[in-house]
Each structure stands twice: as structure tokens, then as C-alpha cells.
């Protein structure tokens, strides 16, 4: 099939995989990428629970403003879209 927009997926070279945990389960990512991207690729979209039974939420603005992607690391709430993945990082669902 003719494509005017090429498929670049196979031409992207990523750094070595690292393993971190999300709510205790191992997730693979690449050193230097952000958590929101790594979790999304792993199919883990539900990052936090909204207050007052607002249900599951995940990354939305991808630019550090909406606060929907927040997770907890070492007790501190951080934006997954602005936090780098590192080997062994323990990430918990917030809210």
C-alpha cells in the first residue's frame, strides 16, 4: 500500500531497557524517558484515582499542567509526564 507518511517505528533506536515497578509490578522502560510514556507503552494508563469517586485517571496534557498523571515516589507526588524512568524506581498510584 502506498504511504505518503512513512512508518518510522522501526527506525527509532531507544536506550537500554530498565525495569521499574508500578504498584509493585515490574514495568520495562528506557533510561531517560518519562514515566508517562513508559507506562503508556506498557498499557498502564490508569495512574491515579480522582477524589470523591472520580474514577481512574491518566496522563492528559502531557506538558506538566493538568496534574492528571500524578504518581507517588518516595512519598512525594510527582507528575509522571515530567519524571525520568530509572532502574529500580518504585512508583505508586496516587490518590
Amino acid at each position: 500500500m502506498i504511504r505518503l507518511v512513512p512508518n518510522h517505528a522501526l527506525k527509532i533506536v531507544r536506550s537500554a531497557p530498565v525495569v521499574f515497578t508500578f504498584d509493585g509490578q515490574s514495568v520495562e522502560g528506557h533510561a531517560g524517558e518519562n514515566l508517562a510514556g513508559a507506562l503508556l507503552r506498557a498499557g498502564r494508563l490508569h495512574l491515579r484515582n480522582a477524589p470523591a469517586n472520580g474514577g481512574p485517571r491518566g496522563a492528559f496534557c502531557c506538558m506538566g499542567l493538568c496534574q492528571e498523571c500524578t504518581v507517588r515516589i518516595d512519598g512525594q507526588v510527582v507528575e509522571a509526564c515530567r519524571t525520568e524512568v530509572t532502574q529500580g524506581l518504585a512508583v505508586e498510584r496516587a490518590g
Binding site: E33, G37, R57, C62, C66
Partner: peptide, 16 residues
Amino acid sequence: SGVLGLAGATALFKQS
């Protein structure tokens, strides 16, 4: 979860 902003999606593409 799984609904991204339209512009937000480009931020995801560009960095990840």
C-alpha cells in the same frame, strides 16, 4: 484514562 489532549498527544510524540 486513554483520552489525551490533542496538542498533548504531540508532546508525547515529540518526546517519547
